[in-house]
Design a protein around this nucleic acid. Structure first.
Lengths: 227, 227
DNA sequence: TACGTTTGACAATGACGCATGTCAATATCA
DNA sequence: TGATATTGACATGCGTCATTGTCAAACGTA
């Protein structure tokens, strides 16, 4: 019946191609997500508030994301890859020394957190409470960072010098130390200078580095009183 | 005009005094809160679900608590004081040695988490996303634990042996290490034996203990080498 | 200029949950 | 035994928000 309209495409709108406009909108939504999620948190963030901040209407939200959770996942991945890049860039040229590398990595991480506190809220707080899906995402991400630490440890201390330790556990412990240190720092309003915070955290890495080679080979379950 | 009824009190109902019945209901709600908050999390927990689990009706919920947030706070405080008691009980009789005390404390903490994983969700995950009010609560609590660690550090390593470290920062780092270690353990399904996890975390304490007395006295940004 | 596309503002729908209210059944006390 | 306190099951009001839909204005193309 109805004359099926030919639906001719418009090549460019305001001088920008369709794909690119869509990509821009998506990007604006991710920025807005960082802002809203990072300040009021995921659970208090409404789609409306995000769209308002992005200067877009709700319709465009659902053009790019299935729902609020999907946007959060995208924001999270965005931050993680950003941090990973910065971290790798800081570690690659560093001398192969525990203390130096620890300081380089921690300076990068802590600096990023201070420069943009919204990161913390998203990376270390809300991510665990969004959904199982996002939770898995975060496990993989922090596991990745722990893997980094673990690799360093394993490289610098070969098997026989590790005193029966499980590198994965130790690495996660160190990552946790960094996370909680920066959270304490943030809560206090970033009073202490960056170098101080880095130093106090790096000491844990250095101490472990100094301790391992000489650690008693006693196993945890030690039945052996190894003197 | 209605004859004002005299509202005589009933001393006991089913053999139990009014106050005690009310206290029991409150206690049942806290138990239910632990269960629901600890499994599905705060934001997915409904008042109805909590009441159903407590075998009480909503009316009694609001008899004991202003709202869901207030119940969460009560549950949180309950867990914290329980943990603190257990921790103190474990540390008091322990020999005054870093490694030994760390192991005693960590064994208590990690054991509690494994025995009741709901603790973790409430203590380390949801608590930061409930409200500013509850957030402050948690800061005080974790600050308390850090204070404990800090006191130990300060006791065992007097001023002149601390290599320009800030005990608060170091303590928070160690607490974070413990937290993330137990979270990694939990996520893996508590595969490793308790002793192994404790050992791998205690090493951080021991390493620091061994490192401090001989640490270079170089300050990070040393302003005053105050001796 | 005329027509279809793209966009922005906003309304409509429906689901959900908190908080309070109603009412009958049961227990206690005079 | 009758009156009132207490309880338990359920209903209601109210607000919020996700998601879809409507419509006119702005824009690009023929």
């Amino acid at each position: 019946m109805a004359t099926k309209t030919t639906r001719r495409k418009i090549s460019r709108f305001r001088g920008i191609a369709a794909e690119e406009r869509q990509a821009q909108r998506r990007s604006m939504l991710i920025d807005a997500g960082l802002e809203i999620f990072g300040t009021v948190g995921f659970h208090a963030a409404t789609v409306r508030a995000i769209c308002t901040h992005a200067k877009l209407t709700e319709r465009y939200f659902y053009e790019s994301f299935e729902n609020r959770e999907a946007l959060f996942a995208a924001v999270y991945e965005h931050l993680v890859s950003h941090l990973r890049d910065a971290l790798v860039a800081a570690l690659l040229p560093a001398p192969r020394d525990v203390g130096t590398m620890a300081r380089a990595g921690l300076t990068t991480l802590f600096g990023a957190m201070r420069d943009d506190p919204r990161y913390m809220r998203i990376l270390f707080v809300d991510v665990f409470t969004v959904s199982d899906e996002v939770d898995r995402l975060s496990r993989r991400a922090t596991g990745g960072f722990a893997q980094l630490v673990q690799t360093l440890v394993e490289t610098m201390y070969p098997q026989d010098r590790r005193a029966g330790l499980d590198p994965r556990l130790v690495a996660h412990g160190l990552v946790g130390a960094a996370m909680n240190t920066v959270m304490y720092w943030a809560y206090g309003g970033y009073k202490e200078p960056l170098e101080t915070v880095v130093h106090n955290c790096a000491v844990l890495f250095e101490a472990l580095g100094a301790y391992l080679p000489q650690a008693p080979v006693a196993k945890p379950r030690s039945k052996v009183g190894k003197s």
